[in-house]
Nucleic acid binder design. Structure first.
Lengths: 121, 121
DNA sequence: ACGGTAATGAAAATCATTTTCATTTGTGAT
DNA sequence: ATCACAAATGAAAATGATTTTCATTACCGT
């Protein structure tokens, strides 16, 4: 099949370890890298197969890719202006793990986002 | 705007309270109901606004609509078979509120989902 | 250099979802 | 009942992410 293009992984890292395929592609374009969208998709998929990245879904259904092992964080997003604050989720991590174990689930992950209206809006 | 077509809700109920828009549409077709896909989408969206149904995402990104009780809750979803457990989020509620206030946000809401592999899978 | 396999990417195909817009239906006032 | 207007409807087109196709190119071992 196809192996991952290393520039894709490096771009995903540079993006903070968290981005959609389209975002990785646009980022590479902006930085002058010559690559096709198809290759970006294929590389990300191959990274998922190799368990080097995780794939999640945004609320709008777009797939987002996240480096495994990155200490992950959550977001606090303003519904009005879109300003985003990255937050640590200490309490959540334990909660998710605990609940999942109670129900006999393994291989546990989670998503959590907080949204509201920021000071300026 | 537009209100929900009652046949859509009744079909979603008949489907076990868990189906995608396309599935609801195909089900209604098969049962001889005359309705457009657009209306199915609009009705489901309106049900989501009215908090009569929840919307989640399948692994492939397709939105699935699900009847839910009135109390605010979160989900523990099996990535493999889709089994879903409704859970209470006591800890989360406080955490979200606290973090948001720290950053000066008001009108706060949140989403949280836990996913993993269930016992059977 | 040669032959074969893997990687690449442009363009077309897919598929769920949304938008547009013209038509129909329902409702309330008169 | 009739007129007028708002809401609902759905067919068709638009959108946007993702996948597939396929012809070309880069790479590797001989």
């Amino acid at each position: 099949m196809s192996r991952s293009n290393p520039r894709v992984l490096s771009t995903l890292e540079r993006a903070g370890g968290f981005a959609s395929a389209q975002e990785v592609y646009r980022l590479m374009q902006r930085e002058g890298e010559s690559i096709g969208l198809t290759t970006v998709y294929r590389s990300l998929q191959s990274l998922v197969n190799d368990k080097i990245v995780d794939v999640l879904r945004r609320d709008d259904g777009e797939a987002i890719y996240r480096l495994c092992g990155e200490s992950h964080h959550h977001h606090l997003v303003c519904k009005s202006c879109g300003e985003t604050v990255e937050i640590e989720g200490g309490a959540i991590e334990k909660w998710a793990q605990l609940i999942a174990e109670e129900h006999g689930f393994r291989d546990v992950g989670h998503t959590a986002e907080i949204f509201g209206i920021c000071k300026k809006c």
